[in-house]
Amino acid sequence: MIQILHNPRCRKSREGLAIVEESGQPFEIVKYLDEPLSAGELQDIIKKLKIRPIDLVRTNEAIWKQEFKGKSMNDNDIIDAMVSNPKLIERPIVIHKNKAVVGRPPEKIKDII
């Protein structure tokens, strides 16, 4: 089943959800701001995305700039920051089988569904 990590307030996330809906395949919406991910779940997603944790961070968010920018952080520190502040996680993320993609642009979602 397809999973989409979704923020309903985000235009790109809504566009990504529309692509998933149009696929006609069964899917699950994960509102990660309401139900925060664990460090393990986030690590699993990062592995499927084949990126480094910092590449999943929304570095233009005020909380990143105020709390974390310029600090020496390892991958676990960055994951902990995203777990504590889910707003920092790039969106939408679509997971299908053993692959994942950040839907920016949303059309990238079509590559895995």
Rank of each mutant, 00 (worst) to 15 (best):
E35M: 04
V30D: 03
I46G: 00
K48H: 04
V20A: 06
L33H: 05
E22P: 00
Q43F: 05
Q43N: 13
L33P: 02
I29V: 15
I29C: 08
K48C: 08
E21M: 11
I54F: 06
A39Y: 07
K48S: 04
E35S: 15
Y32S: 08
Q25Y: 08
E22M: 01
V30R: 15
G40E: 13
I54M: 12
K31W: 11
Q25A: 12
E28M: 09
S23G: 10
Q25M: 15
Y32F: 15
R52L: 12
G24V: 10
E35L: 07
L49M: 02
E41K: 10
K50M: 08
I45G: 09
L56Y: 04
K48Q: 11
L37K: 09
D55G: 07
I54H: 10
R52D: 10
I29Q: 14
E21T: 08
S38W: 11
I54A: 02
V30C: 11
L42N: 01
P53E: 09
E28C: 04
G40R: 03
F27M: 07
L42S: 05
F27D: 09
P53K: 03
F27Q: 09
P53N: 07
Q43I: 00
K47G: 03
D34T: 01
K31C: 10
E41I: 02
E28N: 10
K31E: 15
E28I: 06
Y32A: 10
E35R: 15
A39H: 12
I46Q: 01
A39L: 05
R52H: 08
P36I: 07
G24C: 01
V20G: 06
D55L: 09
K48E: 09
I45K: 05
D44M: 01
Q43G: 09
Q25H: 08
A39N: 06
Q43C: 04
I45A: 10
P26N: 14
K31D: 14
E28Q: 14
D44W: 05
D55P: 02
L33A: 07
E41Y: 02
S38I: 10
R52P: 00
P26K: 13
I46W: 02
D34V: 00
I51D: 04
L56Q: 08
I45M: 10
V20I: 03
Q43Y: 07
K48V: 01
L37A: 00
L56T: 11
K48R: 15
I45R: 09
Q43W: 13
E22Y: 00
E28K: 12
K50N: 15
I54T: 06
A39K: 11
E35T: 15
I51N: 01
G24D: 04
D55R: 13
K48M: 13
Y32G: 08
K50G: 09
I46D: 05
L37F: 08
D55I: 00
I29S: 05
I29K: 15
D44P: 00
Q43V: 02
L49R: 06
I51M: 14
P36R: 05
L42Q: 02
P53Q: 03
L42P: 01
I51S: 06
G40L: 09
G24T: 06
Y32T: 06
K47N: 12
S38Y: 13
D44E: 12
P36S: 09
G24Y: 02
K50H: 12
P53T: 05
A39E: 12
S23P: 06
D44C: 02
